[in-house]
């Protein structure tokens, strides 16, 4: 009877254990991010196009800042010129990371599903979270190339001081944790539904437009404001603007509470993405990855 051989642990150790060892999160994360960066370097036109797109956006908002005025809150004096450009740059600092980190992991997961790589991954003991988060991490690393000059320009224009600049960076870093978890969740959409590009597109638009990247949330109708308050980006943009514009910018909540909101979102998204990852793999294996 083979039933006797079915144990939670073997009745005798395998004399040929093989070389496979647990591949923890950080090792898979680093290997995947390095792999993706290497691949990105070999698709140079993609990379150049991406930075060119960012350059055009910056120029557009520079021109816009000279042509319009934005009232940060009802009754407040409008932002114009360099102040308004700092307002737009605050949005762009985070927008730099949104689209690639939502799109790229999903596209990578969809391609890996199509080619059979994901099936192979699911047959290894390597950390799945490390694999998907590695795809996000490499995109965030590439995003830093655009972020760094934008941040320098922002500091030059807004002169927030050392503490202000450090807090601005801290807010962005905390946002990236939430973004990584979101990226993993969006990649899971591809695992479950293969073609989920338009859903990621919707998320990107929501995080840019509804969260107030280019307009103050206070200018939105009440219903949209409620939606905005449920998004981590709203608090990220708000905090960056608080440290960039100082007293010229009234935050939606006291800054301490906004930090707590971002941290809560980051923790909640991370926990949710870990949970969903397990469920998505179980469902994919039940259905058969080749049939997804």
């Amino acid at each position: 009877m083979i039933g006797a051989a079915l144990q939670a642990s073997p009745t005798s150790p395998a004399p040929w254990p093989g070389l496979s060892r647990p591949a923890p999160f950080r090792r898979v994360l680093a290997a995947t991010a390095a792999k993706n960066l290497r691949v990105a370097r070999r698709y140079l036109p993609n990379l150049l196009g991406r930075f060119a797109q960012l350059g055009f956006r910056v120029v557009f908002f520079l021109l816009l800042a000279g042509a319009v005025a934005v009232r940060p809150a009802a009754g407040a004096a409008p932002l114009t010129g360099s102040e308004l450009f700092a307002f737009f740059l605050s949005g762009l600092l985070l927008v730099v990371f949104i689209r690639p980190s939502l799109w790229a992991p999903m596209e990578a997961a969809a391609a890996d599903l199509q080619s059979g790589t994901l099936e192979y991954l699911f047959a290894t003991p390597g950390s799945r979270y490390g694999y998907l988060a590695g795809a996000v991490l490499s995109e965030l690393a590439l995003g830093l190339v655009g972020f760094a000059p934008l941040f320098a320009v922002m500091v030059w224009i807004a002169r927030p001081g050392f503490a202000g600049a450090a807090l601005m960076l801290g807010a962005c870093a905390l946002m990236l944790v939430a973004l990584t978890a979101l990226g993993v969740m969006v990649a899971l959409l591809a695992v479950l539904w293969r073609q989920a590009g338009s859903l990621a597109e919707v998320l990107g638009v929501v995080f840019e437009m509804v969260a107030g990247a280019y307009l103050p949330v206070t200018a939105f109708p009440a219903a949209l404001r409620w939606v905005a308050h449920a998004l981590p980006y709203t608090w990220g943009y708000d905090l960056v603007r608080h440290y960039a514009l100082g007293e010229r910018w009234a935050t939606l909540l006291p800054p301490g509470q906004e930090w707590a909101m971002i941290a809560a979102h980051a923790v909640a998204y991370t926990a949710l993405s870990v949970h969903l990852l397990g469920r998505a793999e179980r469902r994919a294996k039940r259905t058969g990855l080749h049939l997804l």
Binding site: R27, R38, G116, E119, P125
Partner: peptide, 23 residues
Amino acid sequence: SERSAYPRLTVRENLRFFGALRG
């Protein structure tokens, strides 16, 4: 499964990556 590796990585780079997945 002959497509299930990364076309823009070399064979060695692919094997190193998949080796990392196995610790």
